[in-house]
Design a protein around this nucleic acid. Structure first.
Lengths: 207, 207
DNA sequence: GCTTTGAGAGTACGACTGTTCACTGACTCG
DNA sequence: CGAGTCAGTGAACAGTCGTACTCTCAAAGC
């Protein structure tokens, strides 16, 4: 079995997680570039100096948050898309799953949507790298389908990116809409996705 | 003729504009929620207190920047889309025009992309309202075309929103790419747009 | 020409920021 | 058991911040 971590290291991880959680909460109403180091430590209940034991910077903390939010989502995409069912059904299921994820942990997705184009370069790049990874995963799954016959890799990546961007946009729209407008957002997102899928079906119609 | 504005009012407008310009420059590397009132006035060369003569808040300044950036773009959409030429040609022209606009005034578009999901609610809402307006304009233009026969208003709005979101995404991608990757971004943007247009053409194929 | 107006200057305030340094004391390991 | 490690403390640093005052003095309006 794996090494049992000591009490000491466990405590450290605990406060580190507390810092991440508190930051995420604070970031609901502001962006990372205005998040203060002291502000975070105050929320957790530790000294400002303790922050440096875990992160060099608030920017580094941001990168860690990106990892926490998106790192665990890899592989899940394949599981959704590879599922059986006709395309219409599968499409609805995807949107529904996003909606469930976003409402389950809104703060995480709000953070991603906000910092994707935010003021902190390192975080922007971390998010971009993760999303690029997702786009490649989607492209991978799509390439295995019979509908993708004759598609070159570049076009598949383009389509994968389109799906990923659409998902992020949908997540953001869900957050802005609140619980009342959620159904409306889901409806529009589904139709948008259907239109893209329709375009995909006729992509090779004309040479 | 219209009333000639006095020297006094002209000076006021001049400093107001200086505040807006300086802010836009400062916002290239940070987001609005971390932009300080003093920081702006220091860049312009006026006293911090002078800021209050023009804006209550940095949030109010942000809203003014939204107006400045997007307010003048209304109507332009119609002019582009309504132009003659086959759909492929028109599509390429639209993307090219966005690219030109973005490279001509990068700071403005960076600001919009950044604050669209940024930490300041009033600014987010101002941007959302403007983009909603654009989506409606696009839908209006599209509805007049023969390809839109049988489309209901809701679907046209969905499509218009899709186009607008795509434009914003393209603008942001252009800014992140820099001068070297610009052509690649334009290429992908064109293909994405083509796929959406293809989906549009077959939207009514199945009842 | 005399009064009124208002953009901007100047000063001062308390609160907050990131970072440094020397420290403590509980855990780890030989 | 005893020495070493290191997460977290506490005080102090020099800045920055937004905002409230009073004041000036050129333009505007009668």
């Amino acid at each position: 079995m794996s090494h049992t971590i000591g009490i000491r290291q466990a405590q450290k991880l605990k406060t580190r997680q507390a810092l991440l959680d508190a930051s995420l909460e604070l970031l609901e109403h502001q962006s990372l570039s205005s998040l203060g180091l002291r502000e975070v430590t105050r929320a957790v209940g530790v000294t400002p100096t303790a922050f440096y034991r875990h992160f060099d910077d608030t920017a580094a903390l941001g990168v860690a948050l990106v990892e926490e939010t998106l790192g665990s989502l890899h592989g899940m995409i394949g599981a959704i898309l590879a599922d059986t069912g006709d395309s219409e059904e599968r499409l609805d299921r995807s949107v529904g799953l996003i909606a469930r994820h976003v409402t389950a942990q809104p703060a995480h997705f709000r953070f991603i949507a906000r910092e994707q184009h935010g003021g902190v370069g390192q975080v922007r790049e971390a998010i971009a790298a993760q999303l690029r990874g997702f786009a490649e995963e989607v492209a991978e799954v799509l390439s295995a389908e019979p509908e993708s016959e004759g598609w070159d890799r570049e076009d598949l990546l383009m389509l994968g990116g389109l799906y990923v961007d659409h998902m992020v946009l949908t997540a953001s729209a869900l957050l802005d809409a609140g619980p009342d407008g959620e159904q409306e957002v889901v409806r529009v997102a589904r139709r948008r996705l259907r239109l893209v899928t329709l375009g995909r079906a006729h992509w090779l119609d004309t040479p």
